[in-house]
Amino acid sequence: MKDLIKYIAQALVDHPDQVAVSEVEGNQTSVLELKVAKEDLGKVIGKQGRTARAMRTILSAASAKVKKRTVLEIIE
């Protein structure tokens, strides 16, 4: 899960080396924290949050496979 988000985010930004994803695991829900370079913040959020929404949608589809919930947070 973590790798997937990292992979997508790295493909979207200008500074892939500054992409960091950390996972806070819970019983049912885990939280993914995505950190990118300041200039790239807009790239992972997108117009009207569309990119962020797309990533969250894919994340929830992927976590349905392992019967869990995953929340994506983009850290400023």
């Binding site: 997508i8 797309a54 990533m55 589809a61």
Partner: peptide, 24 residues
């Protein structure tokens, strides 16, 4: 079914992201 998602939203999300990555 999971790949398409509710109202095709997963499908749409995949299409959007892939398009974005290619065009970058």
């Amino acid at each position: 079914a999971i790949l398409i998602g509710k109202r095709g939203q997963t499908l749409e999300a995949m299409q959007y992201l892939v398009e974005k990555i290619i065009n970058k």
